[in-house]
Amino acid sequence: MKEIELVVGDPTSEAWLEVHHAANRGVWGAAAERTSIAEIVDVAARRHEVRRSFLVTEEGSDVPVAAAQTIRRTRDNVGTGGLWLSVHPDHQRRAAGAHLLARCEGVLRADGCVRIHEHSGAPVENGDAATGFALANGYRQTLLDHRQDLALPVDEAALTALDPRPDPAAYIIETSVDGLPEEWLEDRALLARRMSTDAPTGDIDLDEEDWDAERVRQQWNTPSPIWGIESVARHVPTGRLVAFTDLVVRPGQPDLAVQSDTLVLREHRGRALGLAVKLANLRGLQRERPEVTTVRTWNADSNAHMVAINERLGFVVTGWTREWAKDL
């Protein structure tokens, strides 16, 4: 085996990305997700991440065998690294994955990370080869998420029947397409901070993320190949945003919308605001991007309330994602 470090965006990176796509197809078949080099580069900058990419090829040839990327955060939770590792299905069980994993763990350790927090997914509840690989290499499971899919379009009559119609004297629902209004940014920063601590994290302690209006502006209001739509609930008496949800459509898979985050502030829960903003966003998505045929979301199995909301909307479970952690 021969290992090289590459820069994502150069010609070699397409072969690197195809290893990830081939491994994903091996797990999910026709339902495999796809990404693009443009998206990977864009996301790293927006998330304040430093990424290093590695490709393993057969000795004496340029045939790709395994690919990986280390993810080091520079703004918050800087001691917790990420890892994206794939072995091509034609070359699995030949030690390439273990070799590349050891290399990436060493890189993250040298970069000052004290642990790795990552995930793997499969269409079977009990896990697959990635589950066994993680356990064999000292990773512990911190959380189990349900992957849920919604087929589009959803009939407007069905959406109307589900709509909780919040009291307009108490809450109004607003939607923004491909960018957020300037007057949202301060409140959205607060909601993002709360999202980082209120969402289930399982058996791992993560610090509150450092969000301010400028970070929200960079995330949502600078040119990007990723398209987004967001709906919020505004508390009329105070004028503050108290709930949000967003969907993104990525260039590598324009027929799929991915649910990013949904949150209702604790003090405003119990009023069906989560359902209200999700319905508004679905309506906007179907209006703006009719080519999208699937909405996909992930929720911890312990988050029964959000899973139930998704089921009311018509989402069905299509897979399970395990979150993993390992101390370095």
Rank of each mutant, 00 (worst) to 15 (best):
H268N: 06
D246H: 14
E291P: 07
V242M: 11
G228P: 00
A243M: 02
V264S: 03
S231K: 01
A233P: 05
Q253Y: 10
L263G: 05
L247W: 06
L282P: 00
A300C: 07
P290Y: 02
P237F: 12
R296H: 06
L247V: 05
L282Q: 14
R266S: 13
D255T: 13
R296L: 09
G252I: 05
E267G: 08
K278D: 06
S260R: 15
F244K: 08
P237L: 13
V258I: 11
T297P: 04
W227G: 11
V236Y: 04
A243L: 05
V258E: 09
T245R: 06
V264A: 05
W227K: 14
P290H: 07
D261M: 11
R289G: 01
V236F: 14
R287D: 07
D301F: 12
F244H: 14
V232C: 05
R234Y: 07
Q253L: 07
W298Q: 05
V236C: 06
E267S: 12
S260C: 12
P237I: 14
P251C: 11
R296M: 07
W298H: 12
G274E: 06
R234P: 05
G270K: 11
R271C: 10
V264Q: 03
T294L: 11
V277T: 09
P237A: 11
V248L: 08
Q286D: 01
A300G: 15
R250C: 04
Q286V: 02
G228M: 10
R287C: 06
V292G: 00
G274M: 04
D255I: 10
V292L: 00
N299Y: 09
A276S: 13
L265Q: 13
R269Q: 15
